[in-house]
Design a binder for these strands. Structure first.
Lengths: 248, 248
DNA sequence: TATAAACCCTGACGTTGCGTTAATGTCAAG
DNA sequence: CTTGACATTAACGCAACGTCAGGGTTTATA
């Protein structure tokens, strides 16, 4: 049996929090002594751990309450929904960071930014556009599939992935006569981007940096040149066009 | 002159919001008519735009009020502080996403995850550890320096960066006899990691994936082999040790 | 000109998750 | 018996409004 104080220090929450959880019937003490003191048992401690776990994931207390009294599969789908929400928040935060950076530059006068552009990120149109991009960027199926890490793959799988990568480059070379803006080339970029998922999490902005590096850093250029002397530059252009069209 | 309704539709906020902003002296109408109606002018519209801008960046209204009445340089430092906060939020969100993913897997039984690990992310120790890592990961000076994009550099700067990269590899080769866990090798990894900053934002987890790719993907391996046949593998080991020591 | 529609106002409570007094009771140690 | 650590409930405070409630004003229309 734990007193409020004991439980609070054990779990690292305030006494007030326990009072509150009791008040909203989220966590009730096992029993109440004659003197009115709350007394918790181990089951209560466990439940509190669960609560804190979901709270850390930014669930609302009301939702936690429902969750804890629901069967397992409902918890899973709740978590999946929450996962989507977190991805949206991640995207939004990334966008905010960028805007803040731009604004700082603007205020410092280091960069010209029309008022229009300053507010552009928040127009309804842009919001919709952004939502569309975020949806693409964070399409659950895509991300879930790509989130597994390279090291977890079997040798055959790794080989298959590498073959896939080579295939992308070959197709890219085949698409070179049609121009970097051709649907064929753009499709290759899309595939390349997904292929990169196996190694690290892609990011639209970083994509261009990566392609540039491919074309300029000695780490990669020689290798590319061996396949085709203009592949690196072609890829950079294609990726630039791809990024521009995606972030339009 | 705009009425409340007009201004609200113009700016896309509710009338209640305008009432509230008036109440907290964030945005007062230009004048009040005989009948008590609020009347706003263009200056008010402009100020409202500013307010919404900062609000979109998740500033608190109280802070916005101070901001709008402060000179330019204070706005900059406020934005920089906010930038830090956003980065922290980004890191936190990323961590939450990962934990949610792990938990889903756990609940689905696809993966063994001891209770300990399930809650590990939230223990105080881990929190402190994580804070340390996040601090390192998002050290303002580091990130600010690295956040500039490759494409913004001059040709000479690009050359210098590439030379720096080559230097890192040469030093790495020199450190090979001392072992991947030697201070020399580890220092090279540190430098390599910073060097990567020029191309995309690094991430401790992704770092190992990247090193692995260097050693396994045909895109890179040949190139590395040309420098030294065991460089790629050595780097992977060194980076693995580095990542392990950093995320201990 | 009467009246309805549309607009305006000022309270004031509800929301979320507790922090923070305030006023008061209980229990073990000295 | 007093002190101090612990316990209780009650109630306000915070952020940024949403949402009635109750009641004026203006404008258009029948």
């Amino acid at each position: 049996m734990y007193s409020v104080k004991e439980l609070s220090t054990l779990a690292g929450v305030s006494v007030r929090t326990l009072h509150y959880y009791d008040q909203i019937d989220l966590l009730s003490p096992a029993r109440i002594a004659q003197n009115g003191y709350r007394q918790y048992d181990d089951a209560g401690l466990m439940r509190l751990q669960q609560i804190l776990f979901y709270k850390e994931l930014d669930f609302k207390l009301k939702d936690i309450k429902e969750l804890l009294d629901a069967p397992g599969f409902e918890q899973v789908s709740a978590l999946e929904n929450h996962w989507d929400a977190l991805l949206a928040r991640l995207a939004r935060t990334e966008r905010l960071i960028k805007t803040v950076e731009d604004t700082i530059l603007h205020l410092k006068g280091e960069k010209e930014m029309s008022k229009k552009k300053l507010f552009a990120a928040f127009s309804e149109e842009e919001q919709a556009e952004y939502a569309k991009e975020a949806e693409k960027k964070y399409d659950p199926a895509t991300v879930r599939a790509s989130n597994r890490k390279w090291k977890n793959y079997s040798a055959e799988k790794k080989q298959a992935i590498m073959d896939e990568g080579n295939q992308v480059y070959e197709d890219m070379i085949a698409a070179m006569p049609k121009g970097p803006d051709s649907p064929e080339a753009q499709a290759c970029v899309e595939r390349w981007r997904e292929h990169m998922n196996y190694f690290w999490t892609p990011n639209l902005d970083q994509l261009l940096g990566l392609a540039t590096m491919y074309g300029q850093s000695p780490d990669f250029k020689k290798n590319f040149d061996a396949m085709h002397p203009e592949l690196a530059e072609f890829m950079r252009e294609a990726v630039a066009l791809y990024v521009a069209s995606q972030s339009k």
